[in-house]
Design a binder for these strands. Structure first.
Lengths: 276, 276
DNA sequence: CTTGCTAGG
DNA sequence: CCTAACAAG
């Protein structure tokens, strides 16, 4: 169970961010996503795979007290990202300036003024899956190359960022139950994992979850086939990737495996908001 | 509740025939179709809209004690008819020799030797719906014209027939709850009802159900929209159409509204088997 | 509103 | 195995 923010000494200065691939916002709403969110103490929620069109995105998907922003794919019922926030948003940007990031609703970014001297960007990213074949893997690989350039630019520009989302890549052995059996599976390919190494080791981004949690068996996605989730045969592919200004401000991280309204679990990270 | 055949003085000489549009045999199986059939005392069952391919038609759809014959459409998951019989079948014919009757699995006929001096043909017919637009209505009308010729031929040949099925046409005012509101609806169009008049009045076929039941409010299909079935806002569009040799042998007819494994109800008719 | 197909995951 | 679109009813 995730603690209430009120357990912190100064809970007003803790930012709780949730990342969740909802696998269809309409389906996850029926399964209690918004009931869970109401009790989660979340400040900002980054959703992926919303699979909802603007005209279907009715009031029941916009609970009172939340600022809600949707970036749908052009294709109905496919992909899409959203950001929900209890805190005021200064501005919202959608897309990354290249093909499928923009046409498939794979990136939405909210900019906040938390009064800490720098604008904070919190983004929801839905990286393509490569599992449906060679063509899909090729499109994923192109996305990775294009997106790496943007990540580098943000670092060069000294942006403060927390990019939550479904990266569809496990990083290390600890991040997947069946390591040896998945070496040739999309999402666990050596060149994909090397891409994450590059982001962290060379560009200096931080895996917020691993910054404070080093235990194995903490996954964020389980196949729907068989009893994968019950047996915890999972993959950790949902991350909070942040710039190094957050390094010493990560005060807690959880994956909420029992929140079962999707094939993914919510990944929750608490960040301390303060001027150093 | 439909009586057991054992309530008849000589139940061995009563033939119980069931017509049921199953709206997907796989779905209706899950909802208890075969449990109901096991207690129905049926001898022959004519199914329409089976929506199952031969390779999907596994053992669970072939209960022991039944002879089972499927005539699927070429298109997967679409239309299709079947005949199930506890009594031995002499031969089975599929199709009517014209286009969509044959390619869409809309007619299957079993021939029986009941030892009454003449072969008896029991058929399952699934007449096209015209409700999806003008093109569909035009195809239905062509079917009606082609099929009328065949019905005439069977009469000329003095065949003994019981053609069960979903005719997708109400006959008279008594056969539909909302008569005035459906005068322009496919299935209740004047020319369609006139076609049924022709079959009965000019070709001499008999509506087995109406031969023994004259009450209103006995329907065989209800829309899935709203609470149509609960409110009994229905249509009688499923018939047993038989040749006049059966006229004095119809001993009971029921529509089993509470058997809810489809948007249609089973229509059950008992026929006395005897040499006059 | 429902079945089943298909694409996508 | 799950979601959602689609065609058909």
């Amino acid at each position: 169970m995730i603690p209430k923010k009120s357990t912190y000494a100064d809970d007003k200065k803790v930012l709780r961010v949730v990342s969740i691939n909802v696998n269809g916002l309409r389906a996850s709403e029926k399964k209690g996503l918004f009931d869970w969110l109401a009790t989660s103490d979340a400040d900002v929620v980054c959703m992926q795979e919303t699979r909802i069109n603007p005209e279907q995105w009715t009031d029941k998907f916009k609970p009172t007290g939340w600022h809600t922003h949707l970036f749908p794919a052009q294709k109905a019922g496919y992909a899409g990202t959203a950001i929900y926030s209890r805190l005021p948003i200064k501005s919202v940007k959608t897309g990354l300036g290249f093909d499928i990031a923009d046409t498939q609703g794979r990136f939405i970014c909210a900019t906040f003024d938390f009064g800490i001297g720098i604008d904070v960007n919190i983004a929801s990213l839905y990286l393509p899956s490569g599992s449906s074949g060679d063509d899909a893997q090729a499109r994923k690989d192109v996305f990775l190359q294009e997106y790496a350039k943007i990540l580098k630019q943000w670092r060069d520009d000294n942006q403060s960022m927390i990019i939550c989302g479904d990266y569809n890549i496990v990083h290390k052995r600890i991040d997947i139950k069946n390591w040896s059996g998945n070496q040739k599976a999309s999402g666990c390919l050596p060149h994909e994992r090397a891409w994450l190494d590059h982001i962290y080791d060379e560009l200096g981004y931080i895996d917020s979850f691993r910054a404070v949690r080093d235990e194995p068996f903490l996954y964020s996605w389980w196949s729907n086939r068989g009893q994968a989730r019950a047996k915890n045969v999972g993959w950790r592919i949902d991350y909070h990737v942040c710039t190094p200004d957050w390094q010493d401000k990560i005060v807690g991280a959880w994956v909420y495996k029992d929140a079962w309204f999707s094939d993914h679990a919510p990944v929750v990270v608490d960040y301390r908001l303060s001027i150093d």
